[in-house]
Design a protein around this nucleic acid. Structure first.
Lengths: 132, 132
DNA sequence: CACCTATTTAGAATCATTATAAACTAGGAC
DNA sequence: GTCCTAGTTTATAATGATTCTAAATAGGTG
């Protein structure tokens, strides 16, 4: 129920599948990172039924467009998404291949001195790679 | 000739293919960004002959491991590489899908306040997305 | 209910990248 | 130079994430 309005207000029909995906993504204390593959498994575990991969892709792209999810820029064969859509950055542990959130206050202000004519800064993303 | 020693000193045999790829990648005034697909075309244009895709992949991975190339962390279906291996950052123009270098001096110092036990910072990469 | 359009779906298609295994080659030993 | 061997190259097949397709289904409005 709690996601009905969220979806309706975004112009997305609140289908059974979308509501289930909302539950898995947003009905948690903490935000988290995931790949489509991991989300697929999580949906199966949490709800007991399967949603077609095509639908999962459709849905997360729709959610991303609406600002409910963010892609994390990182080189990997799979795309990583983040349910934390506030401005923040990431550690990437190269050995464990794990992402760790860096809150905005964990990173000093970032001052971009160069300007490009006719372009505005939309976002600034910092990836800090960690090794042992 | 100029890349023979570079390759030998890295423990890479200076094959015809690797020397040609060195020419295309490093024999330029300016550094540049590329995908494997673009590199493949560039090799054909510059040298007139074709190098197998498998060889191109092998070679750029070898070069990356030796520190002659860097991957640029960005979400794309293709992997972007950079012949500029100095510490620096990137603008990404969302509309034109173009990468633009940000020299280190274009970005103020970045202060990471959070520490992870037993881990060292290997690199810090900033991606600044641009819109119109 | 009836209708229309958005959505879901299984499966096929795409495409970057990696694996395979056979042919080739650099470079040292003789 | 010839031989030898491990490192390379190559065409091709395999992989795997993502996207496409077209048919079936389901919201939502009248």
């Amino acid at each position: 129920m709690q996601y009905l309005d969220k979806l309706r207000n975004s112009g997305l029909r609140p289908t059974k599948q979308r509501l289930q995906i909302c539950e898995v993504l947003f009905n948690t204390e903490k935000t988290f990172h995931f790949t489509v593959n991991e989300l697929d498994k999580k949906i199966k575990n949490n709800t007991g039924n399967k949603i077609s991969l095509a639908t999962i892709y459709n849905t997360i792209h729709a959610f991303e467009k609406k600002g409910y999810l963010k892609q994390i820029p990182i080189n990997s064969n799979q795309t990583y998404f983040d349910t934390n859509v506030t401005d923040h950055h990431h550690f990437y542990d190269l050995k464990d291949e794990k992402l760790i959130d860096l809150e905005n206050c964990d990173v000093g202000p970032i001052n971009i001195k160069k300007k490009i004519n006719g372009k505005k800064i939309k976002s600034i993303e910092v990836l800090v790679k960690l090794e042992d």
